[in-house]
Amino acid sequence: MYDEAAAIRRILTERGDTWAVVGLSGNSARPAYRVARVLQRYGKRIVPVHPKAETVHGEPGYASLADIPFDVDVVDVFVNGSLAGAVADEAVAKGAKAVWFQLGVVDEDACDRTRAAGLDMVMNRCPAIEIPRLG
């Protein structure tokens, strides 16, 4: 049985310094914008991934995970659940250590594939909620 609580702890404390935030744009009304700011406050480097490739919170954006010219630790997914599986597969191909599906993003098959590839995987949760719980 997969221990998601342990995965959350690992991702937030051991494995997650650089976070590619898929769906992050300069739109301050979107949840991704606010969550990325919280991640920064906790010392995480955020990398915006959005077709517009905008600079957000001082970090240059990229149109896709494949366009990022450096390693990422965690891929944080803010896209529709029907698109999330493809993003998880891209995260595996990119060599990420973990994938995090945000609140409301659910794809059980993608979750199983990602875990089978050896990555930590969290689904339907928010790191901005989980970080303070760690104490």
Rank of each mutant, 00 (worst) to 15 (best):
M1R: 15
E4C: 11
A5V: 14
A5H: 12
A5M: 13
A7H: 10
I8C: 00
I8V: 08
R9I: 07
L12V: 07
T13S: 06
T13M: 05
E14I: 05
E14M: 07
R15T: 14
G16H: 01
D17R: 14
T18C: 09
W19K: 00
A20E: 05
V21E: 01
V21I: 14
V22A: 08
G23P: 05
S25F: 15
G26V: 01
G26P: 04
N27H: 14
N27F: 11
A29V: 15
R30V: 03
R30Y: 05
P31G: 11
P31E: 10
Y33L: 10
R34D: 09
A36P: 10
R37N: 09
V38H: 00
V38Y: 00
L39C: 08
L39R: 01
Q40N: 09
Q40D: 09
R41I: 00
R41K: 14
Y42R: 03
G43F: 04
G43S: 12
K44R: 15
K44D: 03
R45E: 10
R45Q: 12
I46V: 12
V49H: 02
H50A: 11
P51N: 08
A53P: 10
E54Q: 15
T55R: 13
T55S: 13
V56I: 13
H57N: 04
E59V: 09
P60S: 12
P60I: 07
Y62H: 12
S64F: 04
L65V: 10
I68P: 03
F70Q: 13
D71K: 15
D71F: 08
V72W: 05
V72Q: 06
V74E: 02
V75P: 01
V75M: 06
V75C: 04
D76R: 00
V77A: 05
F78D: 01
V79G: 00
G81C: 11
A84K: 06
A84R: 05
A84S: 15
A86E: 15
A88S: 15
D89V: 09
D89H: 11
A91E: 06
V92M: 09
K94C: 10
K94E: 09
K97N: 08
A98S: 13
A98R: 02
V99G: 00
W100G: 01
W100M: 03
F101T: 02
F101Y: 13
Q102Y: 06
Q102P: 07
L103Y: 10
G104C: 09
D107H: 13
D107C: 14
D107S: 14
E108W: 12
D109F: 03
D109W: 03
A110Q: 04
C111H: 10
C111K: 12
C111P: 00
D112M: 13
D112H: 14
T114C: 11
T114V: 12
T114E: 03
T114N: 05
T114F: 05
R115N: 08
R115I: 11
G118S: 07
L119Q: 11
L119C: 14
L119K: 11
L119V: 14
D120Y: 07
M121P: 00
V122Y: 03
C126W: 01
E130V: 04
E130Q: 11
P132N: 02
P132W: 00
R133H: 08
L134Q: 07
G135N: 12
